[in-house]
Computed example of a mutant assay.
Amino acid sequence: MSTTALRARRVRGKGAGLGLLAWLLGIAFFLPIAWMALTSFHSEADAATNPPSFAAALTLDGYREFFGAGGGASPWPALINSTVASVVSTLLVLALALPAAYALSINRVRKWTDVLFFFLSTKMLPVVAGLLPIYLFAKNAGMLDNIWLLVILYTSMNLPIAVWMMQSFLAEIPVAVIEAARVDGARLPTVLTRVVAPMALPGIAATALICFIFSWNELLFARVLTGVVAETAPVFLTGFITSQGLFLAKVCAASLVISLPVLAAGFAAQDKLVQGLSLGAVK
């Protein structure tokens, strides 16, 4: 066997090994979700068995109880609050991050690297360290249990990572295209909306998806700063853990329903997400 053939055989063997490892990792990450989905269709008695009974009868009782069929609280207000807080904050983040990233990547300001480091340093503070000052501010401002307070918080929390991501995406846009638009008389708003945004659409979609996921899954601030009116879906989910015990089937049903918007958004934008994350990659 020649050296070239032996080398090609080793490359194929290495590729097959990496492919098998990727499949194993994918299955390992998917198994908890599949287990949660299966448990959500079991009765509480079957869900509490150890080891779990995979051949147990399937039922929708967990979903009926989650949606208030048994006289419990309705999850719709919490789901609507999470949708409003996540979508509005994501739109605000994109509206603020796009011009900021443009100033840091294309039309660079002085000491732009220091600005990026400052944005990154804001994420180094533990979230719990800022909880008390924010709570006191919200209390004195009369904004406790207010969904718009969460919108402001989620916007400020996601803005630094959005600027970092979009700065790397916009840095890949050819400057000649923007200069041509300026020569044609396009002003900054036109350049951002009609030139930069369409070319950086995959990166914008990836940034929007990540900000939406972070906002949807946030629990600490929502738990402390909201009550009944502005309760979000993760806070509503924690209400199923009571002193009377943990109702596993209903918790799994609630977790699956609350996870569906994020899973649906990720599935719908998966092609844009892959393009966006690879667009800002270091070559």
Results as ranks from 00 to 15, higher is better:
Y63S: 01
Y63H: 03
Y63A: 04
Y63R: 04
R64L: 09
R64I: 07
R64D: 10
E65W: 11
E65N: 13
E65D: 15
E65H: 12
E65I: 13
F66A: 00
F66W: 01
F66R: 02
F66M: 03
F67T: 06
F67K: 02
G68C: 08
G68Q: 08
G68Y: 06
G68A: 07
G68K: 03
G68D: 10
G68H: 03
A69T: 10
A69P: 11
G70D: 13
G70K: 04
G70R: 03
G70I: 07
G71Q: 09
G71V: 12
G71N: 11
G72S: 12
G72Y: 03
G72M: 02
A73T: 14
S74G: 13
S74F: 11
P75R: 03
W76D: 12
W76Y: 14
W76L: 14
W76T: 13
W76C: 12
P77W: 07
A78H: 00
A78E: 04
A78V: 05
L79D: 10
L79W: 07
I80W: 15
I80P: 14
I80Y: 15
I80A: 15
I80R: 15
I80L: 14
N81W: 01
N81L: 02
N81V: 09
N81M: 05
N81I: 08
N81R: 01
S82P: 09
S82W: 03
S82G: 10
T83Q: 12
T83W: 06
T83D: 15
T83G: 15
T83R: 03
V84G: 04
V84A: 11
V84F: 08
V84Q: 05
A85E: 07
A85F: 01
S86N: 06
S86G: 11
S86W: 02
V87K: 02
V87E: 09
V87R: 02
V88T: 11
V88G: 04
V88A: 09
V88D: 07
V88M: 09
S89H: 00
S89P: 10
T90D: 08
T90K: 05
T90E: 08
T90F: 02
L91D: 12
L91S: 10
L92R: 00
L92S: 05
L92H: 03
L92D: 06
L92T: 05
V93T: 08
V93D: 04
V93K: 00
V93H: 03
L94Y: 08
L94A: 11
L94I: 13
L94S: 09
L94T: 11
A95Q: 15
A95K: 11
L96T: 10
L96W: 08
L96A: 12
L96M: 14
L96I: 14
A97I: 02
A97C: 11
A97V: 03
A97F: 05
A97N: 06
L98T: 09
L98M: 15
L98G: 00
L98A: 07
L98E: 07
L98N: 00
L98Y: 04
P99Q: 03
P99S: 07
P99Y: 01
A100T: 06
A100V: 05
A100W: 02
A100N: 01
A100K: 03
A100G: 10
